[in-house]
Amino acid sequence: MKWIFSGLVISAVFFGIISGRMGAVSNAALSSCGEAVGLMITLMGSMCLWSGLMKIADTARLTEKISRMFSPLIGVLFEGMHYKSAAAKAITLNMSANLLGLGNAATPLGIAAMREMEKRNPNPGVATNNMAMFVVINTASLQLIPTTTAILRQAAGSERPLDIMPAVWISSIVSLASGVVVAKLLSKAGKGS
């Protein structure tokens, strides 16, 4: 995280000087930190809603059933994770929400999954292989219907806004697979689990 943060700030200052846009950079620093609070407030509503609904599903043992359905997949992607564990349940629900295109629901569920994994982390503060894998899967979006894209295509007058779907599926799957393979390879090359 510190490299992402410092890398972006340092290059912002560097390029700001080169292109003479330091004024804009300085304004951006002041306005974006405020925007972050606005974004959190927007997120907070869906965060509460979906966390509440998940708690119902959890108490009713619905999440355990869904988690069992996904357990073969979870077993391949994540090391030593049982489908009954809280982390596996949250991961499964996050994946289901992503597939359905419920981005608002996927984020709180994903955060819950990360926090569950952190609880069992032998080195707190250092990402485990499973955490890295989970975040990589989330950065390579996988959804059945690319809703936002289709709506924008329709608005721009596309004759068949959804005709890109097969192409989107294949690209997402290949991208997901590349991410997963690189994550697996690097996790072995790294300091181990």
Binding site: M1, M114, R115, V126, A132, V135, L186
Partner: peptide
């Protein structure tokens, strides 16, 4: 999750 080192 309070993770500072994101590794790979």
């Amino acid at each position: 999750a309070g993770i500072a080192k994101t590794r790979h």
